[in-house]
Design a protein around this nucleic acid. Structure first.
Lengths: 203, 203
DNA sequence: ATTATTTCGTACCTATCGGTATTTTATTGT
DNA sequence: ACAATAAAATACCGATAGGTACGAAATAAT
């Protein structure tokens, strides 16, 4: 299976780290981080529990690893959409598209794993908490940069950037919630449009 | 203690139903419904576990009873604010006041119990789920009535009432989340103002 | 006084949680 | 061939979850 890396002396490792992370992410994402046990994950991933502990140190380490991986697979695509320099309303449409296009990729509805982890943060370990805070702060920065850029181009109303960034964070969270609740595409789209209409100058 | 009701034959009941509900609500509200065990509640309320089961039937019954009580103590005051007939912007200010004034009433920060229960709905029992759905649907109706009234008075933009009601629900949820996160009053107020600015016509 | 009735709470049940001690197994270095 | 090493998995740990069996205790009716 996993015959990568330099091989030392002992028994070759069969545990596939990425496979375990993917399995754990799937379950954390769909069922909520607090509702999935180590036992469940080790069973679903086809790995023994001591194997998990050897690889990740414990539940905290696994959840941190999952979150780091989610940064690449779930958050980076969003950041890329935000970083493209284009009219604000085009960006909003691109965001709506991104959200809606993510839907058919998964069999079971899911929201934002970072948001889900954040909302049960006090049940998670120290390392995971640190990672949550870092990723959240990074995403706030991304939103702030996007807002700031649109403001300097005079495309949106003059709302304090800090406030606007937090608002964007909340509205993204809402939209992801609607996705998880299986609300129809049209409803999600209309809700996002309504949310972001606070930025567009009154006609 | 509890010498109310008609007394029959057996040992008089000492368990105070309302006290147990209040204790359970406090803990569900502060720590999250899924993070509080029956053991914990029976300990904190000074009641034996079989006593709890005799009174409420089980965890599901207790959580349902707590939610019914929350309708009176937490939701009704909000509905009353919404039902008063006044200019939309005055209502928004009254809502902000209601939210902020609720803060110093509690030692530990808390959001909306209905929202918290709804966000972990799949971990709760059948009766509780039914109650959650009923209360949520009721609150949506309240928001819709408020929006509809403002629309007929030409105070707000022409946004589909269903969508607007869902939006209001989400924004209230956001505001409660900020309260729970201990964000400063000014931030909560600005966020609510920003959220509700989607309704106000061109400035 | 005795009996019927109701509530009381201790002590227990099974399942599952996160986590680990320990032995086996598979490989490399000598 | 054999020692050294590293990862494998079984089988366990104490704690806690939701839930209950059951006898003691307290009252009202007889």
């Amino acid at each position: 299976m996993n015959d990568s890396e330099k091989r030392g002396r002992g028994r070759p490792k069969s545990l596939n780290r990425e496979h375990v992370i993917a399995t754990a992410m799937e379950h954390y994402w769909v069922d909520g981080p607090a509702n999935v046990s180590i036992n469940e994950i080790s069973k679903r991933a086809g790995v023994s529990k001591p194997g998990l502990y050897r690889e990740f140190g414990g539940e905290d380490g696994l959840q941190k690893a999952v979150l780091e991986s989610y940064l690449d697979s779930g958050l980076k695509p969003l950041y890329e959409v935000l970083e493209i320099d284009r009219p604000f309303k085009d960006a909003v449409q691109a965001l709506i598209n991104l959200f809606l296009e993510s839907r058919p990729l998964f069999a079971s509805p899911r929201g934002c794993l970072l948001r889900d982890m954040r909302s049960c943060q006090d049940q998670l370990g120290a390392d995971t908490n640190e990672t949550i805070d870092r990723l959240h702060s990074e995403s706030i920065d991304q939103y702030a940069a996007w807002i700031e850029r649109a403001k300097t181009k005079n495309e949106i109303n003059d709302i304090p950037t800090d406030l606007a960034a937090e608002y964007v964070d909340l509205q993204f969270g809402n939209a992801m919630l609607l996705l998880k609740r299986n609300e129809p595409d049209e409803m999600v789209e209309q809700m996002m449009r309504l949310s972001f209409s606070v930025f567009t100058p009154k006609q």
